[in-house]
Write a protein that binds this DNA or RNA. Sequence first.
DNA 1: CCGTATTTGTTCGTATGTATT
DNA 2: CAATACATACGAACAAATACG
Lengths: 257, 257
Amino acid sequence: MGAQPLWREIAEDLQQQIERGEWRPGALLPPEVELRARYNASRNTVRDALKWLSTRGLVQSRAGRGTFVAETVDPFVVTMTATGPGGGETDPYLEDSRLQGRDSTLTTPRVEIQKADADVAAGLRIGEGELVVLRHQQRMVDGRPCSLHTTFYPHRLVEEGAERLRVADPIREGVSRYLDETLDLRETGFRDRLIARPPNKIESMFFRIPDDGSISMIGVTRVGFDQHGRPLRLIVTVYAADRNHLVYDIGQVPPAT
Amino acid sequence: MGAQPLWREIAEDLQQQIERGEWRPGALLPPEVELRARYNASRNTVRDALKWLSTRGLVQSRAGRGTFVAETVDPFVVTMTATGPGGGETDPYLEDSRLQGRDSTLTTPRVEIQKADADVAAGLRIGEGELVVLRHQQRMVDGRPCSLHTTFYPHRLVEEGAERLRVADPIREGVSRYLDETLDLRETGFRDRLIARPPNKIESMFFRIPDDGSISMIGVTRVGFDQHGRPLRLIVTVYAADRNHLVYDIGQVPPAT
DNA sequence: CCGTATTTGTTCGTATGTATT
DNA sequence: CAATACATACGAACAAATACG
């Protein structure tokens, strides 16, 4: 076997001990000097091992305190195909959170008007540089930041009468209903495109996760289409992968147990 | 300003240069000794910077060769809601690959019979330890390993007549059609549950990605239900996040441009 | 095929800084 | 203030992989 570097041996030994539950999540690992003695390696080699565990999300080190076994978060299950009355800003995940006994809150939207960049323009099928209304929101579950939402509406919707879109007040009855009542536009379908990638600096700060890429982001780009097959809005959502599971129910699906 | 470690300064400087395109993807970065001179830092500090870039997937180092700017892979777009004739092993993504001008192949299934562990039993709503038929398959796109599939069928389906499930031959007409014709069971809905996580050792080897967690896996657990609302099969798929985008079309969605 | 130069990988040592208790 | 523990940064030596003549 062997031929494996010492730091890797140490890392995998520690990994097995963690996975066997010899240390509970949140427990303090022995300090580096003690591991150095235990494995008969230099402190740098022990640190290489701990770093590897850290980038895989198994441990977390804090200066002056020690190295801890990572806490396992009970993931929040987000039903992406929820058909609530709103589907908008009155919290489409309220049902999810109620079922899971969680406390989910959406912040009041922060609203901007910008020119569409290439990606937004392509999604909404408008010209690059045309105006769009952005509505930013943040979701907290049990006090923990869980996801970041940005919805882009073509500014033409405002011009045609949906004035409240550019006001930084929650549209309590749901944006879908508001657009239906105001402009007779209904979101009759949507296309979600999912990717996973490392967090950027802003996301690391918002989600309070280490910026070593140990926890990745799930990015969902949703284009909603109206009854005429025209893009109605573009929702860009970023989920922290350690605390969210995404669920799609397609066709006839019995309720979850 | 400062208050930022030297290795991080170096890393972000290199990151900006990469993102500004001063090195093309695949290009060779200057060797560590040269960066050491350029930034007036020790080789270990330069290596810390390169390691940070590496775990974020921006560069890749190879012993004896050098450090390269990561190649950007043109992602394969997988339509998760495809309603092909098979929906099974005749390649549900054939349409996707044809549209994208890609060459997609599925390996011949490797078949096993096992006892259901807790997760599989819960998904299929059978007792833990009951027999299940596993069918493993691998997907390659343009010669690159793209996803790993394992489908679990309750062994009762075999006992009731679907004998071909336990034979390691592709079911060319599609498992869905086979089960319909044999047992009058149709998959009328499914529930997908998505997570993102670091690769394990096996996945690192199969997908040929570094095992530092720089590229994460997207795991999809699909439970398919028959017309009676009973779980028909459990499909566990692992996608390498750097080369796959997942798409869900819900409701009325115009064709992609 | 062999030997050499180049480049990254591993491992050690040491010193000092910073955060926490 | 002192003790503890991790973070940063330097230097050095050798191993392993690769490329090239």
